[in-house]
Amino acid sequence: MAITRDQVLHVAKLARLDLGEEELERLTAELSEILDAVSKVAELDLADVPPTSHPLDLVNVWAEDEPHRSLALGEALANAPAREGDLFRVPPTA
């Protein structure tokens, strides 16, 4: 199943990856080959089979609504590449 360079570029945008030209070429070839292999799942007629999203039979796991200590501000910011006061600093979003 061939995937085109434009499709790869579109997926890279969705995935927020600024891929270089060389990587784009390589991934186009590799993804085509991998998609060929995984497309095998389409051979099976599974119209009546329910999906499995999780192998454990757990539903509605509740926790008591009790206050507890979370990360202190200093801890939460400790690994930030850039901060300003008590905030994570990022470039302008617009």
Binding site: V38, V41, L44, L46, V49, P50, P51, T52, S53
Partner: peptide, 11 residues
């Protein structure tokens, strides 16, 4: 893809 794979997983 993803939906079909989840059904295969059931089998």
């Amino acid at each position: 893809f993803y939906g079909q794979a989840q059904k295969v997983r059931t089998l």
